[in-house]
Design a protein around this nucleic acid. Structure first.
Lengths: 128, 128
DNA sequence: TCGTTGTTATATCCATGCTATAACACAGAG
DNA sequence: CTCTGTGTTATAGCATGGATATAACAACGA
């Protein structure tokens, strides 16, 4: 199965779906042009409501990961337009992680090594 | 003012307070042994309910940033016990940031440079 | 004793997540 | 044209969690 949902998680179902799709794209299991199951089919597969899937799809489109149209359903189409905006967004998301790491005496080199490993794990998959 | 709360934010008030305290510790504006205002005083200063502050303080204690006792109120006391657990936690928190960066074609070097800048901004403050 | 500390308990209000049912506009297949 | 399957929107109901208000408790210092 491409997408897995944890019903016991405190994370909202539509956020989980949103995240899983992004991870699948990063891991090259979903590529530009691939189409995702329709909201109704995906909802049925996951055992959730149609609107929950629709919410995730709408968010994915808003953030530039898919295109939605009435003919082909949801088609993966990563949109990279504003590099500065992406960096700024990443800065905000990284804020608390860095602060916690500083408090807990985690060295800069450890952090960068972790980032490198995680990043290259994806890149390795992308080049297959 | 040491702590600022944004009432228009979608982030829960107690989470904002929790985060602000951690950032203040990382920035060396709060140091080990410093005491935070009592739950009632802090609630009054921020304009929120006592229970909201209490929730944040309890979470800070649980995560090893302060000690709470009836004499001195909330005292900053960063507890670093399980290095592996902190790294694991950081890994989980970093997961989506990395995946998004890979999707949006942000280079590893850019990420590491950002991490380095943010980290050293804190470290610079810590050594004052 | 009095005041202040963290802590716990109850109750209420509101926003959000999720579901259910229904309907709509649009496009391809027959 | 008709039928089916897209995404999309609307409305409603239910459960959960965040925030509030009020109240009370045990512990410690002045």
């Amino acid at each position: 199965m491409l997408i897995e949902i944890d019903f016991d998680s405190s994370e909202a179902l539509y956020i989980q779906l949103y995240n899983q799709v992004i991870k699948a794209i990063a891991a090259n299991r979903l590529r530009d042009g691939d189409s995702l199951p329709s909201v109704r089919v995906m909802a049925d597969e996951l055992g959730v409501n149609m609107h929950t899937v629709n919410k995730a799809y709408a968010l994915l489109r808003e953030d530039g990961y898919v295109n939605l149209d009435r003919r082909n359903g949801a088609v993966v189409a990563v949109r990279v337009e504003d590099h500065g905006a992406h960096m700024e967004s990443m800065h905000d998301n990284m804020e608390m992680i860095i602060a916690q790491a500083v408090c807990k005496n985690i060295e800069l080199e450890e952090m960068q090594e972790l980032v490198r490993e995680m990043y290259e794990d994806y890149r390795r998959l992308s080049s297959l």
